[in-house]
Amino acid sequence: MTSISEQDFGFLRTFLREQSSIQLEPGKEYLAECRLTPVARALGLKDIAELVALIRRGTSVDARRRSLEAMTTNETSFFRDVHPFETLRDHVLPEIVRARAGERALNIWCAASSSGQEPYTIAMVIREHFPQVAGWRVRIIGTDISTEMLRRTREGRYSQLEINRGLPARLLLKYFERQGLEWQIKKELRDMVDAQEVNLAKRWPSWPIFDVIFLRNVLIYFDVATKREILGRARKLMRLDGALFLGGAETPMGLDDSLKRTQAGPSWCYRLAAASPAPQPLPRTA
């Protein structure tokens, strides 16, 4: 493998930062190499130098898109980290569902939803534990920058490894169908999730405000200014009594002081400082 030149690496860093605000740190040459070599091959190019030249020329949307996608990490799983979904199930949703009994609508946004495991996990939590919202307008919007991840989300097909990871087999039994060697999530759940292309670092579509926002394991890739900007915009899209979930290694501390960490059960979420006190567990109806 020819290694990546200093110039090409510099160009890629700027390209990534400008296109998706992703930080590619100096010293991560190996990462660029092992992610982009397959892209170069797939496009019939000799090496990364040729790929970079193609991106620079700006004539190939395909080369740009594929390279961007290859450089982002799509790691995810059903019920990732487990506890946030317990907090959602036992503390956040009971309170919000009760408060929305008049409106009969729930709006949930899963930003950076990757291949869809996170929005489908939320859909399963709702189906399993909140029978009272059957007949409500429940909308789970899953967004990502990667068209490939959005295609996967819409299709809702998962490999055996993916369904072995984090997904209780009882839920597999209930909500999936076997398709050859893969597993597809049933249409009733696919219909709950709306996959849309959104670059968090650019303009967002005009949306309703959300009851719950999942913004997990994506802020880590951005620089401080972009983090602050994204958190600020996400906060403005939250209902007063809404809840924001971030990844385990992410915090709004020092970035957005109007988001207050609220411990609820085994995990925590963030709520608007002006809003209600810590959510209390309610008796579950299911």
Binding site: Q160, L161, I163, N164, R165
Partner: peptide, 10 residues
């Protein structure tokens, strides 16, 4: 229920 094959993560 865990289906073979799998890795240590699963």
């Amino acid at each position: 229920y865990l289906m073979k094959p799998f890795t240590d993560v699963e």
